[in-house]
Nucleic acid binder design. Structure first.
Lengths: 110, 110
DNA sequence: TCCATACATCAAGAATAATAGATATAACGG
DNA sequence: CCGTTATATCTATTATTCTTGATGTATGGA
């Protein structure tokens, strides 16, 4: 992950539809969701959703897989990890009490 | 953290100067850095840096403290935690193997 | 109180991004 | 093949964001 890529990824997340999509796909986990299904759930027009899905794809936060006529989208965990690792790189200047709370926040219930 | 606030924060990070500033402040930890010092290190003009620091402040990713004539800026760990927690909320749909690698990436050496 | 330092705000031009109508492509069924 | 479904691309308009010169404000020292 370099700065340019990180900026592109954060930029992808700085728009409501795309942020909603990624959060939805993170919830969906390995099951993923079809493009049309995502558009229906979020109430976004087909071509707008397609454009936004493509931006998420290019940002490396999402991946997809053709499934017959549909295309299924998934959160790309490696991409998300890379982005967060880039942000938190060299964190806390040797004082773990600064960054530990950040980790705690992401621990999920599963 | 709500969607509007998260979009504002990700938008704050989707610009080179501001992303550089936050990463710098994360490295600086509790020591923080003066506004002028940040501008010097990153080679950004005074008023541009001031505008960008204000955007980071309003995004909740950074906090500041007056120090005589200077103003010292710090990464706001609570703000960062809130943002990442919002993104990863309800992650992995019951399958921990999806989100654990994300956590591993952020574990720091300190 | 006057000056210097450190930072913030204003305003306007330039660059970038968002949306949606129209159209194109890809896959499947008959 | 032909039609239908599912998604992608093109294009233009509108809206937002970035940068910077000029100027304003706050603090501390002489």
């Amino acid at each position: 992950m370099d700065t340019t890529q990180a900026i592109f990824a954060f930029s992808a997340l700085s728009q409501e539809t795309r942020l909603d999509v990624l959060r939805l796909l993170i919830k969906a986990g390995q099951t993923g969701m079809n493009a049309g299904e995502i558009g229906d759930v979020l109430g976004v027009r087909q071509n707008t959703m397609s454009t936004n899905l493509n931006i998420l794809l290019r940002s490396g936060l999402v991946r997809n897989e053709r499934e017959g006529r549909s295309i299924r989208y998934f959160a790309d965990i490696d991409g998300i990890r890379g982005l967060l690792a880039f942000l938190m790189e060299d964190c806390c200047g040797g004082k773990p009490e600064l960054c530990e709370p950040v980790l705690d926040a992401i621990v999920c219930d599963c």
